[in-house]
Design a protein around this nucleic acid. Sequence first.
DNA 1: TATAGACCTTCAAGTAGCTTGAATGTCAAG
DNA 2: CTTGACATTCAAGCTACTTGAAGGTCTATA
Lengths: 157, 157
Amino acid sequence: MRIQTLAARAGVAPSTVRYYEQIGLLPPPRREPNGYRVYEEEDLERLRFVVRARALDFTLDEIREILALRERGEPPCDYVRDRIVSRLEAIETRIAELRRLQQELVRLHRLGAQAPEAGSSQGETACICRIIEPPGTGAAAVVARPDRLPSRAEAPR
Amino acid sequence: MRIQTLAARAGVAPSTVRYYEQIGLLPPPRREPNGYRVYEEEDLERLRFVVRARALDFTLDEIREILALRERGEPPCDYVRDRIVSRLEAIETRIAELRRLQQELVRLHRLGAQAPEAGSSQGETACICRIIEPPGTGAAAVVARPDRLPSRAEAPR
DNA sequence: TATAGACCTTCAAGTAGCTTGAATGTCAAG
DNA sequence: CTTGACATTCAAGCTACTTGAAGGTCTATA
C-alpha cells in the first residue's frame, strides 16, 4: 500500500505520515523502484496506535517514549498511567479556565448589547472594546492602582 | 520607566514586551542615551489592554485590528462583538472535546488500575498502553477490519 | 504522441505566541 | 576593579504539523 492509502486508513494526511517518519515515530518503509514508500499492515497498526494516542492528547514525545518501551519489551504501564493522571489534571485546569473565560465573555457581550447608546464624550456610543478595558479606567485610574497585576488566565497551548 | 518595570506592572516578561513591539502591537518607545527603552504610563495602558484582550483569548492579529480601529477613531464594537461570539462558540466546542477526552482517560485509567494481575509472561501485568490499542487487537484483528477508521470519539469496549 | 491529472518525491519555510540563548553593553555598589 | 543586575540585538527553538516549490512517475485518453 502506498502512502495515501495508509494515511487514509489511519485518518491522517500523507504529509503527517512523512512527518512522523522524519521525527522517528514511524520506521522508514521500504521503497518501490521509483522511490515511492510502500507500507504493510504492520505499519498501519503502528500508525493507528500513534493516532489513537494523539487523540488521547499524548504528545509526540510521550508517544515516542511509549513506543520505545514497548519495543524493548518493557511494559509502559506505569509511564502511561502517570501520563494519564497528569493529562487529567491538565484537562481539569483547562476546563475551569475556559469556564471562567466563557462567563467573562458572556458578561462582556451582554454589556455591549445592553448599553448601545449611553452618552459618551465622543460621538461614539457604548463600545465593547471599552469593556475590554478594566472597570473605571480613565488614564488616572491606571495610575491609581499600580499594584494590580492582571492574572494570566491563559494556558500553554 | 524601563522595560522590566513596565513588564512587571502589566504582568508579562520583558521579552514579551519586545516581541509585541517587534510585531507592531506596541509603538517603538523612545530610548535613553544608552539605548534602553523608556516607557510612559500611556504605554502601560496600551500594554495592559493587550494583556487583557489576550486573557480573553483574542489572537494578536485580532488585537492589532482592534487597536488599529481605535486609533482611526472608528469604534471596534461590531468587530469585537463578532469576535466574542465566535470565541464563545469555540470555547463551547473545546470544552465538549475536553469532556469527552476526560471520560475516555478516566475509563482507561480505571481499566489499567482494575486488572493489575492477569497472568503475563513478564513480571508486569495488565498494561495500560495495551488499552490504547483498539479492543481485541491482535495482529489478526487489524487485518480483519480494514475499513475501520478510528474516530476521535471512539469508545472501545 | 502528446498531454492531462493524479499520484509520488525532497527540502524549506510558515503557523502562534512567545521563550531561550549567545554575545555584548551599561551602570551602581562594594 | 569586579560583581551583578539590568539592558541591547539577532537567531533559533518550541508543538505538530501544513504548505509550497520544483520536480519525477504512471496511467488514460485525444
